Simulated assay, not measured.
Amino acid sequence: MSGGVDSAVAAARAVEAGHDVTGVHLALSKNPQTYRTGARGCCTIEDSRDARRAADVIGIPFYIWDMAERFHEDVVEDFYAEYANGRTPNPCLRCNEKIKFAAVLDRAMALGFDAVATGHYARKGDDGLLRRAVDPGKDQSYVLAVLTPAQLAHSIFPLGDTPKDQVRTEAETRGLAVAQKPDSHDICFIADGDTSGFLKNRLGAKEGEIVDAASGEVLGSHDGSHQFTIGQRHGLGLKRPAADGRPRYVLSITPVDNRVQVGPREALRVDRIRTGRPVWLAPERTGSFDAEVQLRAHGEVYPARVTADGDGLTARLRKPAFGVAAGQALVVYDPDAGDGDAVLASGTIEETGGADEPASADESALSLSGTESTRG
């Protein structure tokens, strides 16, 4: 129970469903005031108090579990390391993977509980597969796609079939004081929302060049390549516009020489995406198959031809994406699976390319034949 409206209503619904429910709030910082301040639904002292009050109203036991050390090692340190290597991580995925559905679930199972219920907006089908929520604007299946089938089997998402406005109305009816509490949107461990400043305080300042990718001309300087991400347009500090007057975007980041390359938006076009070893939530597939892929939480969905070769996934998009960065997650959906979009697999993006790059022999042959195979 984070202290927000979603987890409070999820807990109340779990009780009504007949489960023996215990509320747990995660203390993720040794000093909560160093994380987000104000009542925003995550990581503050006020949030722990809101969660306790909600548990009292629902009538369930309530505990605070100290996960600060594990959270710092697995989420915050990973965040630093990824940016230092020129990648763009999603800390919410890492938190779900390492904390909420690993450390918490492991402890819960050891204590004799059967599952962890959360306020995430996602559904589990009758086949046990993870599916999008009914409310597309709140769907969180993307950030849950790092779960293993075993973790998913012991997870419950009571809100997946309900639009957010109805959840707030239900909270009011139940007498929960958090009914109108604002949602949390920022990174929970960056108190003021200043990601650049947060990284600079840890990784330091180091002057480097901002270079035109086409001409090699030095256009400006910066004090740390870790402050940039692929596709970034604002905050480049360039005093001279491009010759054609169009805006420039970050195209590449090379931490080794601390250089940032910029260029026009069309240079961000991506048609091919390659991931590292995937996590399969559905029975593992090999070969090529048609699917839909999502590259950001609440981002656009792209039809694609996906090839799985054991070591990773290669997605060839039917329409181009722009500004895709290594470190983000690629999540693969089957849009025709039973009662809604089912998550098949996810993988961390390692590299991207353009449509003019030739397909591998495996991709070409399988794409023509349209065959696919599965193995349990």
Rank of each mutant, 00 (worst) to 15 (best):
K100G: 01
G220L: 07
Q33W: 15
H226R: 09
T314I: 11
T169F: 11
A54N: 07
G340Q: 09
D212G: 09
R277Y: 09
K124P: 11
P149D: 08
P358T: 03
A39I: 07
S252N: 01
E69T: 04
G310F: 04
L219E: 07
L159R: 02
G310R: 01
C95S: 13
S155E: 02
R132W: 14
F71R: 04
V9A: 02
D257T: 14
H234I: 12
A133G: 03
V75K: 05
F322H: 14
A10N: 04
P303Y: 03
A304G: 13
E292N: 03
D362K: 15
S141A: 07
A11I: 00
F157N: 13
M1Q: 01
R53K: 14
G137Q: 07
I190G: 15
F101D: 13
N96V: 03
L93D: 04
P182F: 04
G220E: 02
P182A: 07
T195E: 06
A14R: 01
G38H: 15
G125A: 06
V332W: 07
T307G: 09
L130Y: 04
F113T: 10
S225I: 09
E217H: 07
G18I: 10
M67A: 15
A14Y: 07
Y333L: 15
L268F: 10
I58K: 01
D50C: 13
H25V: 06
I99T: 12
A345G: 03
G299H: 03
